[in-house]
Computed example of a mutant assay.
Amino acid sequence: MSQAMQQLNETRAALAVALREQDWQAIADLDQACRAQVEHAMGDAGRDEQALRETMEQLLAMYGELLAACRQQREAIGEELATVRRASQGAKVYQLFG
């Protein structure tokens, strides 16, 4: 396995850990590293096409999990924001009659 492929696999594993821990800053940093590593792996003249395809499929699956987690997080934040807005409106009504 080439150095570029090994780095991609290590980054994918680190992304999985960061996702489990919901470390969004680490995910952002690892995403940037992953992009550079993909470019490097694609440009590697001696690359193993089959290994590269398998690694890319694994990355695709990881990014699918990341997207699902982001959507879920966005929905949770939206619900929390709606709750805060309702509470704020209730407090304003209470102040008017209090």
Rank of each mutant, 00 (worst) to 15 (best):
M1D: 06
S2V: 03
A4C: 04
A4H: 11
M5F: 13
M5D: 10
M5P: 04
Q6V: 02
Q7A: 11
L8K: 01
L8C: 13
N9Q: 13
T11V: 12
T11D: 00
A14K: 02
A16V: 13
A16N: 12
V17I: 07
V17H: 03
E21K: 10
D23R: 05
D23N: 15
W24C: 02
W24V: 12
I27H: 04
A28E: 14
A28P: 05
D29G: 02
L30C: 04
D31Y: 06
Q32E: 15
C34I: 09
C34D: 11
E39L: 13
A41G: 11
A45S: 13
G46A: 09
G46L: 07
R47T: 06
A51V: 15
A51D: 07
L52T: 10
R53F: 04
R53M: 08
E54F: 03
T55S: 01
M56I: 13
E57P: 09
E57K: 07
Q58Y: 04
L59I: 10
L59V: 09
L60K: 10
A61K: 07
A61Y: 02
M62W: 05
M62V: 09
L66S: 06
L66C: 07
L67M: 15
L67Y: 12
L67S: 15
A68Q: 10
A68N: 13
A69Y: 00
C70D: 13
C70N: 15
R71I: 03
Q72T: 14
Q72C: 08
E75S: 08
E75T: 04
G78I: 01
E79N: 15
E79R: 12
E80Q: 03
L81V: 11
A82T: 09
T83E: 10
R85Q: 14
R85V: 07
R85L: 10
R86Y: 13
R86A: 14
A87F: 09
S88D: 07
G90S: 00
A91M: 14
V93H: 04
Y94P: 10
Q95C: 14
F97T: 15
G98Q: 03
